[in-house]
Amino acid sequence: MEAHEVKVQVLSDEESWELFKKNAGDVVLSTGIKELAKAVTRECCYLPLAIITVGKAMCGVNDVRVWKNALKELQQSNLEVKGMDDVFVQLKFSYTRLRNSELKSCFLYCSLYPEDHEISSEELIEYWICEGLIDKRETRDDNMNKGACHFG
């Protein structure tokens, strides 16, 4: 079997910012937040997965203090985890920002799947229900609706 090397490049500064804005929303254009959001974007090391993950974690956050704290956490994480892929730093950041232990458990459950495995949301929600990761509702439809909230 012949192997081919494919060079994957990081995004440019402008591409990174556009991707971050798309995932974090218009709040990043607010006075006092824009420069912090750009700094947060740079902490994602121009990596698309990191930018998307952190952008979604910060979506709708309009408190300057929360942005300052997020930037500081990312900077400290980058210093603390020398040698670890930058994406893992942003994933850790996003994980710690999840609202509750239920969401964190559901997030961790996804790590049981092999890399690049296509995961059906309905199948995943069924597993979450069976494992007790989301509280059981009166009907199957209610359970599926509750699980679907975790994808929003």
Rank of each mutant, 00 (worst) to 15 (best):
W67T: 02
L71D: 06
N143P: 05
R140Y: 15
R137M: 10
T41Q: 07
A37R: 08
E73Y: 04
C130V: 02
V81P: 00
T53Y: 03
Y113V: 06
F88T: 00
W67A: 03
A70P: 00
K34E: 09
S12C: 05
K136Q: 15
K92D: 05
K7Q: 09
V28S: 03
L98I: 09
D141W: 10
C44K: 07
M144K: 06
R99E: 13
E15G: 04
T31G: 10
I51K: 03
P114Q: 14
A148F: 12
F107Q: 04
Q75R: 14
W67F: 04
T41A: 05
N145Y: 14
V61N: 08
V6M: 00
V81E: 11
H117A: 14
T96F: 07
Y109E: 11
L79H: 00
W128G: 00
S30L: 14
C149R: 13
V66M: 14
V6N: 05
E138S: 13
I134D: 10
V89F: 13
I125Q: 03
S121C: 08
E5W: 11
A3M: 14
L98C: 05
Q9H: 07
G147V: 12
K104Y: 07
L47W: 02
S77E: 10
L29I: 02
L11K: 02
E131T: 01
A3P: 00
A50P: 06
R140F: 14
V61S: 13
E43M: 13
E126C: 12
H4M: 11
F20N: 03
N69L: 01
V8H: 04
N145W: 10
K68C: 06
D141M: 13
S105V: 00
P48K: 06
Y109R: 15
D63P: 11
S94L: 05
S121H: 07
K21G: 01
Q76D: 14
T96Q: 15
F88L: 12
M84S: 09
I119M: 11
N62A: 11
Y113Q: 05
D142K: 08
G55V: 06
F107P: 01
R140L: 13
K38V: 00
V64I: 13
Y95T: 04
R65P: 00
L124N: 14
W128Q: 08
D141V: 13
L11T: 02
N69F: 02
I129N: 03
C106M: 15
K21T: 05
V64D: 05
S105C: 07
L98S: 06
E73K: 13
Q9D: 09
E73C: 07
D135K: 11
C110H: 05
G152Q: 12
V10L: 10
W67P: 01
T96S: 08
K136P: 06
G152E: 15
Y127D: 15
R99P: 03
L91A: 09
E2F: 09
E115Y: 06
V89M: 11
D85E: 05
G55A: 02
L74M: 03
P48L: 07
W128H: 01
L36R: 05
K22A: 09
V27C: 08
E35R: 08
E118F: 15
C44D: 03
D116S: 08
A39W: 01
E5M: 13
Q90K: 10
L29W: 01
N145G: 09
V10K: 13
V81Y: 15
A39N: 07
E43A: 06
E123L: 08
V66G: 00
D26I: 04
A37S: 15
R42S: 09
I51E: 01
E43L: 10
G132D: 14
V8S: 00
W17L: 07
L19N: 00
V8T: 01
